[in-house]
C-alpha cells in the first residue's frame, strides 16, 4: 500500500508571494518522516502540497514536481480529488463532522465514492478502521452517538480512523497532537508507530521530543527573515539530525533549550 514520494525543486506561492523555495526530498514508504522548524517556516504549507490541499486557498500555486511512484501529482491528467483520496490528512485540531454519528464519520470518505457498500461490509470497515486507530474499545458501544461528544484525543483518533477508512497510500499529519493533552498525545504517538507498517506517514510537529520519538527521518525547515521564503535546510535520519546535524542552523535549533526555541517561534510569528 505505502508509496514513496519524490519532491523536486518545489516552489510554493500564495499569489506573487513565494512562501517556500526550492524543496527537493524523498519520502520513503512504510516510514515516518517528521518536519520540524520554527513557526512560519513553511513546513505545514509544504505538507499541504503533498495532497494538493494547498490549492484550496485562492491564489495558491506551485512550481516543480511532486512524484508519487513516479507519477507527478501536479500533472495535467491528475485529478486533485483522487490525489486527496490516496493521500489522507489529519489536521491540527480534530474535526469530526458534528452532524454525523461516530459510525457515519468513519464511513464519510467511503460514502463519497458512491459505492453502495453493503451493511455488513460497512460494519467490518468501521470496526477495522476504529481498531486501526486504537479507538474501537472506547466507542464500540456508542457508534450512533455524535462524534463531537468524544474527548479531544478520541476525536483526533476518530479523524485518523476516518482517514484510513478510505485506504490511502500516504497519511499526512499536521501537528496532530498540538491540541491534545500528554496522555492523548502518547496514544496518538503509539498509533503512528503501528500505522507505519502500512502507510507512508509524514508528520509536522513543533515538539522535538515527539519528532525524535516517532520518526525515522527528519527534515528541518527554516526561514531567513520576514517576507523571505521558507527553505528545507537539512534532511536525514532522525538520529543524525538530533546528534550530528550537518548544518549549524539545524544544530542551533535542535539543541537550543526550549525557551530559546519558543522565543524564536514567537519572533517568527510576530514578524
Amino acid at each position: 500500500m505505502a508509496q514513496r514520494i519524490d519532491v523536486k525543486d518545489l516552489n510554493i506561492y500564495y499569489g506573487d508571494f513565494l512562501a517556500v523555495q526550492d524543496v527537493s526530498m524523498t519520502i520513503d514508504p512504510q516510514s515516518v518522516t517528521a518536519f520540524i522548524g520554527p513557526s512560519g517556516c513553511g513546513k505545514s504549507t509544504f505538507l499541504r502540497t503533498l495532497n494538493r490541499m494547498h490549492e484550496v486557498i485562492p491564489g495558491a500555486r506551485v512550481e516543480g514536481t511532486v512524484e508519487m511512484e513516479g507519477v507527478d501529482l501536479y500533472g495535467d491528467d491528475i485529478d486533485p480529488v483522487a490525489v486527496r483520496r490516496n493521500v489522507g490528512m489529519v489536521f491540527q485540531r480534530p474535526n469530526p463532522f458534528p452532524t454525523m454519528s461516530i459510525r457515519d464519520n468513519v464511513l464519510a470518505g467511503v460514502r463519497l465514492n458512491n459505492r453502495r457498500i453493503s451493511k455488513s461490509a460497512a460494519e467490518e470497515l468501521v470496526e477495522a478502521s476504529l481498531r486501526g486507530a486504537n479507538l474501537w474499545n472506547e466507542v464500540k458501544d456508542r457508534l450512533d452517538r455524535p462524534g463531537s461528544g468524544l474527548s479531544g484525543g478520541q476525536q483526533q483518533r476518530l479523524c485518523i480512523a476516518r482517514a484510513i477508512a478510505v485506504k490511502p497510500q500516504v497519511l499526512l499529519m499536521d501537528e496532530p497532537c498540538s491540541a491534545l493533552d500528554p496522555i492523548s498525545t502518547l496514544a496518538i504517538e503509539d498509533l503512528i508507530g503501528e500505522l507505519k507498517q502500512d502507510y507512508t506517514i509524514v508528520i509536522v510537529t513543533h515538539n522535538m521530543q515527539q519528532a525524535a520519538r516517532v520518526s525515522d527521518r527528519t527534515a528541518f525547515f527554516n526561514i531567513a527573515g520576514t517576507g523571505k521564503p521558507g527553505r528545507l535546510i537539512e534532511m536525514n535520519e532522525t538520529s543524525t539530525i538530533f546528534s550530528t546535524p550537518a548544518e549549524q542552523a539545524t544544530e542551533d535549533y535542535v539543541s537550543a533549550p526550549f525557551l530559546v526555541r519558543a522565543s524564536q517561534d514567537v519572533a517568527a510569528v510576530g514578524t
Partner: peptide, 19 residues
C-alpha cells in the same frame, strides 16, 4: 542550500502505472 539527496526513483513501471 538543500542538502537532501534524491535517490533515483526505484518504483517499478508496474507500480507507476497503478498509481
Amino acid at each position: 542550500m538543500s542538502t537532501a539527496t534524491i535517490p533515483d526513483p526505484s518504483g517499478t513501471t508496474e507500480a507507476t502505472a497503478r498509481t
